[in-house]
Structure formats: C-alpha cells, structure tokens
Design a protein around this nucleic acid. Sequence first.
DNA 1: GCGGTGACAATGC
DNA 2: GGCATTGCCACCG
Length: 99
Amino acid sequence: MDETRHERIRAAVAAIPEGRVATYGDVAAEVGETSARLVGRVLREDGSDLPWHRVLRADGSSAPQILDEQHARLRAEGVEIRDGRVVLANHRVASGWIS
DNA sequence: GCGGTGACAATGC
DNA sequence: GGCATTGCCACCG
C-alpha cells in the first residue's frame, strides 16, 4: 500500500464501528507505522469527515477542547460515560478491528 | 539545524 | 484516581 500515515490513520478511525470507541494508542497500533501523537494531529487537521469522537485517550478521558462534542456524540451512539470518562471496558474495539 | 509545541502513552509517587 | 516526568513523531519559526 502506498498510503501515507495520514491516510492510514484516517482509514483506521473510519473503520471504528458505531457505538464503539478506540484509544489513540490502539489506532496507532493498528496503523503500526505511527505514534499516538500523530493520530491526534491528523484528527485535528482532517478529522472533520471522520468519527473522531470515537477516539479517546488511554484512560477514557479526552481533550477539553473537544470534550463537549465528544461527550454529546458518544452518548447519542449509546456509549456510556462515567464522570467525564468513557467506559472503555464496555465499548473499546478489539485489536485488529480493521483486518 | 535547533528549540518549542501538541486532540498522546507509559511509568512512578 | 490524579499529578509529574519522560519518550515519541511531525510541524513551525
């Protein structure tokens, strides 16, 4: 595949099923050629057309800048949120959800 | 080429 | 569970 990291990250995020979430580290692991920081950068740059709200931090929290929309969209999809943190144990996608 | 910065992660206290 | 430190990669002045 001649896709760049940017495209791979977008594909991985777009492959997250509705009602499920993934951490930046999980997305980076699926891409396998990038780091968690790269994922955040791509989502900020070109996440407008992606389910970026399904991507969370390793502890289930998220950045304050996007937290309000993150919170609203996830609940709309049926994702449980506990004290500002998503319940990863019940909504985290399995490793290799793309393949 | 260098230092600073950021939608992060892992570890230690 | 929360805060501080370190490491990571790409972009900007």
